[in-house]
Design a protein around this nucleic acid. Structure first.
Length: 270
DNA sequence: CCCGGAACCTGAAGGC
DNA sequence: TGCCTTCAGGTTCCGG
């Protein structure tokens, strides 16, 4: 499931193979993988363009094109991956054929992933909260975000318009590390808890990037390999496991409609 | 404004 | 063996 560490890994590992390469041909297996403009217009505007760089904001990827007004933008949603020269299979939704014979496949078992054209990165980025690793994301920033909200703290940190990049797995890991129950109203966290959460968010995301992302299910790196970050997960998807911090058992609950993993002893209810 | 829930999809895994 | 249910999960939209 691509969250910030997975999308960052894809950007880092795809860049050396695609930067400076020209897109010779675009195969679109299903038209609805292109959100805008039409599949035909997309093909026309992208074909023949050279990729000058890839950037990431939150969980979005931007492929910058030479001599173009358009930025090829992607969101992999729940299960999408970008793979270099894989076998074509029933999950291949689109292929970018590059001028050195490299093929970049968008694979996506669940068909949620999309690519489209934007004139400007800010059309997407302006709707997102700060990047967790930007200088302007401080403990104070997080405290300001949390203190206005009575929603469960987990719902708040998953809100991309407030903080960009955190998804379900890393939210659970961060809240466990900070020893905060995910259903706690955000505004009721103490200053010490806010600080623990701040450190935990950066820590779990940093470790996720170091381990090249978490392959709990559908995530693959551009090489087709899995990431290793999930092997360090302490609670996410670990119902029934023993808590690493106490004798308790990890439980699955639902918070904000999302499957949520906690240690009920280390993360006591409000 | 806030919140909950549905919709979008389908494969894997577990229960019976 | 096979059918049925549950779970996974990011974003957007709709209704209360």
């Amino acid at each position: 499931m691509p969250e910030l560490p997975e999308v960052e890994t894809i950007k880092n590992e795809l860049s050396p193979s695609v930067i400076g390469r020209k897109i010779m041909k675009v195969d679109i297996v299903r038209d609805d993988v292109i959100s805008k403009p039409s599949a035909d217009e997309f093909r026309e505007k992208v074909t023949g363009k050279t990729i000058t760089g890839i950037t990431r904001r939150g969980k979005y990827l931007f492929f910058h094109l030479d001599k173009s007004d358009d930025i090829l933008t992607m969101h992999l949603k729940l299960a999408g991956s970008l793979q270099l020269d894989p076998e074509t299979d029933k999950f291949t939704r689109a292929v970018l054929h590059l001028d050195d014979e490299t093929d970049v496949h968008l694979k996506d078992p669940r068909k949620f992933g999309r690519m489209w054209l934007e004139k400007d990165e800010s059309a997407v980025a302006d709707r997102l909260g700060p990047e967790p690793f930007d200088k302007d994301f401080t403990v104070k920033t997080l405290a300001e975000i949390l203190k206005k909200r009575s929603s469960p703290v987990k719902v708040v940190i998953l809100d991309q318009s407030l903080i960009a990049g955190i998804g379900n797995m890393y939210a659970d890991e961060a809240l466990f590390e900070a020893k905060i129950h995910p259903a706690r109203p955000a505004k009721r966290l103490s200053p010490a808890e806010v600080e623990r959460l701040y450190d935990a968010i950066k820590n779990v995301l940093r470790k996720g990037i170091e381990k090249k992302g978490a392959s709990v299910r559908d995530y693959f790196r551009p090489s087709g390999e899995k990431g290793e970050a999930h092997t360090d997960f302490l609670v996410a998807h670990g119902a029934g496991n023993s808590c690493p911090g106490c004798a308790g058992k990890i439980e699955r609950i639902v918070v904000g409609g999302r499957g949520t993993y906690i240690c009920p002893r280390c993360q006591p209810e409000p």
